[in-house]
Each structure stands twice: as structure tokens, then as C-alpha cells.
Design a protein around this nucleic acid. Structure first.
Lengths: 221, 221
DNA sequence: AATTGTGAATTCCTTCACAGCC
DNA sequence: GGCTGTGAAGGAATTCACAATT
């Protein structure tokens, strides 16, 4: 599948995911073909960027015509490893963990939250939405094998994140989505993606702090 | 404050946020001084990166000694615009919106969710955790002014995200945190940050799909 | 004529390496 | 001696621009 030996950058992979979602929507609208230019316009990207991103993996387009949407969707789905559904285990059955378990955005089908794990005896044994079980985090390794979890989401406070990480890593998990506002170091062979709300908010705050010029302009307008 | 006229990259700003949180922790532990090298080790970064990031804004260090932690915290807090608390309005009072309203990670104090907005009459008028009100999203502009919202978080399904964006933008909001899995285009003067769980998960999926190769390489080594 | 795929050019980001200072 | 601040070098990501193709 990976035609070029070259290492693919994370930025490229993230964009492929964005492209795929857009293609899904276009396909649902009955659009058959799209050019890199009109795809690029939807994300204010350069069209060469899109062609380069795709060209790492093969020649999916037709010169003069563009890309066949359903064909490209199949390729991207396969490249991103989305043919088989991934089974996500969430560590931490608090507000965030519960929201993840109920998140409708996953209904596309490639990801399913199959269990939550907590250390609170009051939560262990109950279920979210009547069908997603909450297990004891101490049983993570056994349950993860049993129910084939391949991605762990850490939805615990910062002080518990390192322990949660070592729990899932020693259970053999290779892919981790971390929501705790702390930088975790991935052991070799384990991929961690950080979703850090405080970084995002503080970056917005920086922008607001620096835009008095624009605010003033808007005020005078 | 911004000594250099140069434009600061988003990557730099994100890192400043990470540095600040680490400094807060060190300060709580009673550490007084830190060098760029030992700070860098905590994030597996290059120390020159940290010095460069800070040097955009001033000369905060002392040669031979490093940085005074409390001094640097004050500077970063000010640079990031965190002296005054930001008031966040959440559009969408579903699972995600509710989780945001209850999120303990904000308790640092710089951000407070002050209201939620929804279009569901069954939710409007009630409160989250007994103190955060849910208003009609149709009243957003009025309420936003009334309760001084300066950041909007979009916690709505993808199909509602564009409408939510135009609602908050026309109310004068300049900073938006978007959780909907769709790329929104920011109008001039408005900053949007995307928190896209599907992109993160699909990127993990890509890694999992490609790692048998690396596993094999590690085995052969 | 339109659009891809891609080498070359450019821009942006990171790292090196060292003068300057404590 | 140790560490910062920074110009220069190096590397990565993006954009340009055009030959190749339908």
C-alpha cells in the first residue's frame, strides 16, 4: 500500500483524514469526481499540497479529470487502516469519559468505545447508556485482551495520567489518545496523540490578547 | 510586551502553554530556577527551541543560571493573556457540552464556562451542576454581551457547526474552539482552533496499520 | 483544455555552535 | 563552568511551475 519508502509526516496523515471526511460528504451528495483545486478550496489549502499528500501513496488521479471520489475514498480508507473497526477503551469514567462513550461523532463506524475503566467502586460494574460496561482499571490488561481493545483513551486528571499510560502500555496497547493536560512520553512502538484543551484555549487567549488592534478597528467601523 | 515585531508561530504559542503548565508544577514543588536544558528534557525538545521561543518576547533568563521560575511564569501568564479569566460560552448542551461545563481541568482559573446554549426547549432554562445556565441559542448575541463571553466552544454535530459559527461570529466573538468534526473557515479577525477527535483517532489508526513493519524491524534487530 | 504528478524554489521551523555574560 | 541569546546552518513542509497525460 505504502508505495514510497519515504516517511510520511503526521501533518500529511492528519490531512488525509480531513480529505476523507469531505469525500464521504461529497459522495453522499452524489458528486462523482473532484479536482485537487476544488478540494483545496474547501480547506483554504494549496492544491499542490493535496496532490503531494496523495502521491505519497500512489497515483489515484486522472490527468485532465481529477480524482474519482469513491475510488479515492477506498484508497484513503485503506491507507488510514479504517477497513476494520477499532475498539476503544476509555480510562476514566468521569464526565469526559462518559461523553466519549456517548459521542455520536464516532457513528461513522470506524471507532467504537467498547468499555470504560475506573477505580471508583461506585462506578465499577455499572454501564453507560445501558450497554457500555465500566470495569475496574486494575483489570485492564485482562479485559483489553478479552474484548480486543486496540486503542486506549486517557480521560483522567493530569496526576493520574502517567499511571493510566503505564497500565495500558503494559497491557500491550500501541495507540493512545491522551486528554489529560500533561505531556506524556511514549515508549518505543507506542503512539500517543494529545488532545489538550488548555493548550488550545491558551492559544486562543494569546490571539485575543494580541488583537486589540483588530478589536479597535471593528469598534471604529 | 511583544518585543519582536516578527510574527509568532502557532507552534511556539502552543509550546509556551506547555512550558507554563510545567513551570506551575515546578513552582508548586518549590523549585526556584530551571535551565532551558532541563526544561527541554521534560518534553524531549531541543533546549535551543525553548530559548528561541522565549526570546521572541524578551530576555527572561540569566546567563550561567537559567530562568527564575516564578518570574518566567509571570511573563508567560501575561504573554498568553491569562491575567484576566476568560469566559467561555458552549454551544450545544449534549454530552460533550455538559462534560466541558463540568471539566475540572479548567479549575486552574483562567477559563470558566459561564453558560451553555442549545435549541432544545427541553434543555433551555435548566442548569448544569446547579449553577451553569442553559440558554436558547437564539439569544446568544444578547446573552454573550450580558455575561461577557469572549470565547465560544462549538460542541454541536458537524451539520450544525456552520450555523453555530455564524451565530457566535455575528455576536462579535473573536475566538472559537470547534469540536465538530468539520473544517470551518474563520472570517477575518476570528481565530478558530479545531479539536478533531476523528482526525486524532484516524491518525492513530494509520500508525497501527503501518506498525507491523516496525514491529518486524524491532524483532530482527 | 484541464488536471495530475513532481522537481525546483521558497518559506518556515528546528538545531547547531558559539560569543557574551554571570 | 554553566547557561543564555542568537546568527548561521540544516531540515521539513509548502508552494510554484511545468512536463506529462487524458
Amino acid at each position: 500500500m505504502n508505495v514510497k519508502a519515504e516517511r510520511i509526516s503526521e501533518l500529511t496523515v492528519n490531512r488525509l483524514s480531513v480529505y476523507l471526511r469531505c469525500l464521504d460528504e461529497l459522495s453522499a451528495q452524489g458528486v462523482v469526481t473532484i479536482s485537487s483545486r476544488s478540494l483545496a478550496e474547501r480547506f483554504s489549502l494549496n492544491s499542490a499540497q493535496i496532490r503531494k499528500d496523495l502521491a505519497y501513496f500512489g497515483e489515484f488521479g486522472v490527468r485532465g479529470l481529477g480524482y474519482n471520489i469513491d475510488d479515492l475514498r477506498k484508497h484513503l480508507t485503506s491507507i488510514l487502516g479504517l477497513n476494520a473497526a477499532h475498539r476503544v477503551g476509555v480510562i476514566g469514567a468521569g464526565n469526559l469519559g462518559t461523553a466519549l462513550a456517548n459521542y455520536e461523532g464516532f457513528s461513522g463506524g470506524s471507532f467504537a468505545v467498547v468499555a470504560l475503566f475506573d477505580s471508583d467502586p461506585a462506578k465499577i460494574g455499572s454501564q453507560i447508556s445501558g450497554h457500555i460496561p465500566i470495569y475496574d482499571v486494575a483489570d485492564f490488561a485482562r479485559k483489553a485482551t478479552e474484548i480486543s481493545i486496540d486503542i486506549a483513551a486517557l480521560a483522567v486528571p493530569a496526576h493520574a495520567a502517567n499511571f493510566a499510560l503505564s497500565t495500558v502500555v503494559s497491557a500491550g496497547i500501541k495507540a493512545v489518545l491522551n486528554f489529560a493536560p500533561i505531556r506524556l512520553n511514549a515508549p518505543d512502538g507506542v503512539k500517543i496523540k494529545h488532545v489538550d484543551l488548555l493548550v488550545s484555549l491558551e492559544s486562543l487567549s494569546y490571539f485575543l490578547a494580541r488583537s486589540p488592534l483588530e478589536a479597535k478597528a471593528a469598534f471604529e467601523a
